[in-house]
């Protein structure tokens, strides 16, 4: 095992998959000689050359469209959106084409495309560099949406996404890139299954269901609350869509008190699917109302630091929400 950070796990997964399969190539803005604005593709251009590490124009619809075409042709493209906030020009390509080709062609065609995009706030990025966009894509059958929280999951899930025969949106939290470190097995070609949630901590007072950077807020809060005698069960969704209903319901049953946490705004967030699944399948195990902790329903992450702090999810907010539920 070696300890690496979140973004190195992205780079390692890309490098190993490109090494393993000649059909794998990356494309995006500044991914080549520059190595990506976050340095996720650092070293790939030097190692695999300009034909497999493609710098593209500032046209997200083209990045997605080229990816779809190449994928249908038999390649395994990994397209990078520089920020998830800029994915919207590509939505028509992703939703109307990538997600529907297999269905539309009666299984004759498939789109093994991975689209990577850094999302999330807390980095003074303001409106266009802080958004959480996963909810937009989480009601589109044919798509898969993955948001990992640890370097281990990043590497395993990105490899699984590249090897998947259908389009996968892979959102990486940009604040986690150099903040979150974790152990990854050395030289071991492992994958983490898409569609399966993961228990990150066992407990029996309150269940927290969350994903992405918020998993770490929950873990830190749980550690503190342990001293107060409150035991927290933490489920990391990992795959947002389609959601692991079994995993969600099992985690809810464990304590009967469920806190759903997201950095996204509250109404219409992906958590609602978890809340619905729990309400549908285990009403009689519930000991409290299902609680959601999310950002306020305002258009975007503010730039002013105090406002950003208010808007952004953090460990303290999660901690007090867990405590409230524990005492209910």
């Amino acid at each position: 095992m070696t300890t690496i950070n979140y973004i190195s796990a992205v780079t390692q997964a890309l490098e190993e998959e490109m090494e393993r399969d000649e059909g794998v190539f990356v494309l995006g803005e500044d991914v080549g000689a520059r190595g990506g604005v976050f340095r996720a593709t650092e070293g790939l251009y030097e190692r695999f050359g300009e034909e497999r590490v493609l710098d593209t124009p500032l046209a997200e619809s083209a990045i997605a469209g080229v990816g779809i075409g190449a994928a249908m042709y038999g390649m395994r493209p990994v397209a990078e959106m520089q920020f998830a906030d800029f994915i919207f020009p590509a939505v028509n390509q992703i939703v109307s084409e990538a997600a529907k080709i297999r269905y539309r062609s009666n299984n004759d065609w498939e789109v093994p495309l991975t689209i990577r995009a850094p999302y999330g706030g807390g980095i003074h990025g303001a409106l266009y560099h802080s958004q959480s966009v996963e909810a937009m894509f989480s009601s589109i059958p044919g798509l898969k949406v993955v948001i990992p929280s640890t370097p281990y999951d990043v590497k395993g899930l990105l490899k699984a996404a590249i090897r998947d025969n259908d389009p996968v949106l892979f959102f990486e939290h940009k604040k986690a890139y150099r903040l979150i470190k974790g152990e990854v097995p050395e030289g071991d070609d492992y994958t983490v299954p898409i569609g399966k949630a993961d228990v990150k901590r066992e407990g029996d007072d309150v269940t927290v269901i969350t994903y992405g950077l918020c998993v770490h807020f929950a873990l830190q809060a749980a550690e503190k609350l342990q001293e107060e005698g409150i035991s927290t069960h933490i489920l990391d969704l990992r795959t947002i869509y389609p959601m692991d209903r079994t995993g969600v319901v099992e985690a809810a049953r464990r304590t009967g008190k469920v806190l759903l946490v997201t950095e996204d705004t509250k109404e219409g967030s992906v958590l609602n699917e978890a809340a619905a699944a729990i309400a549908e399948e285990c009403l009689f195990d519930l000991d409290s109302p299902i609680e959601r902790l999310a950002a306020p329903d305002v258009p975007a992450m503010p730039y002013a630091p105090p406002l950003e702090k208010t808007f952004m999810m953090n460990e303290d907010k999660v901690e007090s929400a867990i405590r409230e539920l524990a005492h209910f």
């Binding site: 009967g256 009403l283 009689f284 195990d285 519930l286 000991d287 409290s288």
Partner: peptide, 9 residues
């Protein structure tokens, strides 16, 4: 006397 579904069940 407010019983949750789990408590009642």
């Amino acid at each position: 006397k407010r019983y949750s579904p789990a408590v009642l069940a």
